[in-house]
Design a protein around this nucleic acid. Structure first.
Length: 188
DNA sequence: TAGCAGATACCTT
DNA sequence: AAGGTATCTGCTA
């Protein structure tokens, strides 16, 4: 059920950033990787795109800002192709303030679900970093897991940790400082 | 549509 | 610190 789209790729500070957009430049997917091939394959597959376009794109610039923990302007997401449940989870994720984290369990309480189900939805996020799945940590406040391009990555947790630090989250050893915990509101 | 595997949480030892 | 289990969704056949 994937829609066709255009893929744009750019590189910055040794990493590759890519987006999949529709004809109106609404975001269908975004991702980043150290591995250009992997990134291209992932986005082309999602969008049934044949070619990759390189060059300037506003959303890539916003994406790099987001990755570096900076503010960025509004991005239109096309959430049409993800499940109703995923949309519920992503709505909460997008409310987590920059520099804060929340936990799988707190999200599940807010939306009346279960923590593992939230984990599943977060793991399948195709709008990173605009849907900030890096701001979700286990309840023990360790950094937890992170995968890129829907593949298990050995460096995923390290990337997650760097993204959190870049946006001002305080880490004590391997744990996020409790003062950075944000609790989602239970009205939804 | 049943069975299973998760980016979990919590309770016991 | 480690293991069992409650709990919910999405994927597969």
């Amino acid at each position: 059920m994937n829609q066709t789209g255009r893929v744009f790729i750019a590189t910055a500070s040794g990493k590759w950033f890519g987006i999949l957009v529709d004809a109106n430049n609404r975001l269908l997917a975004s991702s980043f990787s150290d591995n250009r091939q992997l990134l291209e394959r992932h986005l082309k597959q999602l969008g049934r795109a044949r070619a990759v376009e390189s060059g300037e794109h506003r959303l890539i610039r916003e994406m790099i800002r987001a990755y570096n923990g900076r503010e960025y302007s509004k991005v239109d997401l096309d959430l049409h192709q993800v499940s109703e449940y995923q949309r519920r989870v992503y709505k909460v994720l997008r409310q987590i303030p920059r520099g804060k984290v929340t936990s799988y369990g707190l999200i599940s309480k807010a939306i009346g679900s279960g923590p593992r189900a939230v984990g599943g939805a977060v793991a399948s996020n195709r709008y990173a970093p605009f849907v900030p799945c890096h701001r979700v940590v286990p309840s023990d406040m360790t950094v937890g897991n992170y995968s890129m391009n829907q593949r298990p990555s050995l460096e995923g947790s390290q990337v997650k940790r760097e993204m959190l630090e870049n946006e001002g989250v305080i880490l004590n050893g391997d744990r996020v400082d409790r003062t950075c915990l944000w609790t989602p509101s239970t009205r939804h």
